[in-house]
């Protein structure tokens, strides 16, 4: 008797589940296996659609309009008495065709931002990859002790808070900051790190390099440790010296990893934002340090020219895609 009592609630639960399942399957169009599969994917797809796909598409849409204020105009409404729904427009827009894109040709601040970004890219990425490779090779050498400690210390900057580290750089680079104090201490002239056009860009280069070198070093080190030792031995027997081994064995073997580092660093530089904003806020001339993303931010959220900012965003995407494709093309041929 006791056992029957205890099974009854379980049975009734099972019955109700079965009932719901049956009524659900009668409502749904015959749920094949793949339909069920897509149902499971729905949460991810919904989030992706709302937070990624829609903004991407809407940005493209926006780039053909001029933003004239927040919307509010009713686009669609339904009122059944006890349930009502009203869909309002997001923004009040005026169609301008391609004129946002055309405007870029004559926008000198945009040209300046593009120049600054490309300048930082051309100086910073090779510099950083070079230093990272140097550190990686040094740490890979068999005689280095405390490898783990060095690796951790060198990679640590990447975990630094963007605003915090930029602020520290800003303080160090002041006219009377630590760096100039050291420079004058060893008998050199102080450098106008924040006020000169050239040096303020270099300050950003320095800051970004400091932050990301260790991160890239870890990736390169992992790549180095995958190079078979026998290839170095074969090269040694073939008469290669240290530099030739590096050139003919290490670099070709590291090629896919180097490519990854170059492509991700390039994309990262084009997305540069916090550092220039902080350093700019600290008194650096805007023209010499403004980056594309900073300019987009300013256009969109300070000037509220959302249409133009959207167009700029798409141009940025185009430039980054082209550059990455070119790098992949150049670096990806052959194999390692």
């Amino acid at each position: 008797m006791a056992t029957q009592d205890s099974t009854r609630p379980a049975n009734s639960l099972r019955d109700s589940v079965r009932f719901w399942r049956q009524s659900l399957s009668s409502v749904l169009p015959s749920a094949s296996d793949s339909t069920v599969g897509y149902l499971f994917l729905l949460p991810a797809i919904a989030l992706f659609a709302v937070f990624l796909a829609f903004p991407i598409v809407y940005t493209l849409y926006l780039s053909f309009f001029r933003f004239q204020g927040v919307g509010g105009e009713t686009l669609f409404w339904i009122d059944t008495g006890f349930f009502s729904y009203r869909l309002v427009s997001i923004a009040n827009l005026q169609f301008v065709g391609l004129s946002n894109y055309a405007a870029m040709f004559t926008d000198s601040l945009f040209h300046q931002a593009l120049f600054n970004t490309v300048f930082i890219l051309l100086v910073q990425v090779p510099l950083m990859v070079g230093i990272a490779l140097l550190f990686a090779v040094a740490l890979d050498a068999s005689f280095v002790k405390f490898r783990g400690v060095f690796r951790t210390v060198l990679a640590l900057p990447v975990s630094a808070n963007l605003v915090a580290y930029s602020t520290v750089f800003l303080l160090m680079m002041q006219d009377s900051g630590l760096v100039n104090y050291v420079l004058t201490g060893i008998g050199l002239d102080p450098i106008p790190w924040l006020t000169s056009e050239f040096w303020s860009r270099m300050t950003i280069v320095g800051a970004v390099t400091w932050r990301w070198t260790g991160y890239n070093m870890i990736i390169l080190l992992a790549g180095l440790q995958n190079v078979p030792q026998q290839l170095y031995e074969a090269a040694e027997i073939d008469g290669a010296n240290r530099i030739e081994k590096f050139r003919y064995v290490t670099v070709p073997q590291l090629r896919p990893v180097l490519l990854f580092v170059f492509v991700t660093s390039t994309i990262g530089t084009f997305k540069l934002f916090s550092e220039p904003v902080i350093i700019n806020g600290g008194g650096a001339p805007l023209e010499s340090t403004i980056t594309i993303v900073q300019y987009i931010y300013q256009t969109a959220f300070i000037d509220f020219r959302l249409g133009y900012a959207s167009a700029l965003t798409y141009v940025l995407i185009g430039v980054v895609s082209l550059l990455s494709a070119a790098q992949l093309r150049l670096g990806g041929e052959g194999d390692a």
């Binding site: 026998q230 290839l231 031995e233 074969a234 027997i237 073997q253």
Partner: peptide
């Protein structure tokens, strides 16, 4: 000297 390795150690990229 010239050496032939067990796994040949050919340069994969050449």
């Amino acid at each position: 000297v010239a050496m032939v390795f067990q796994n040949y150690a050919l340069y994969p990229h050449m």
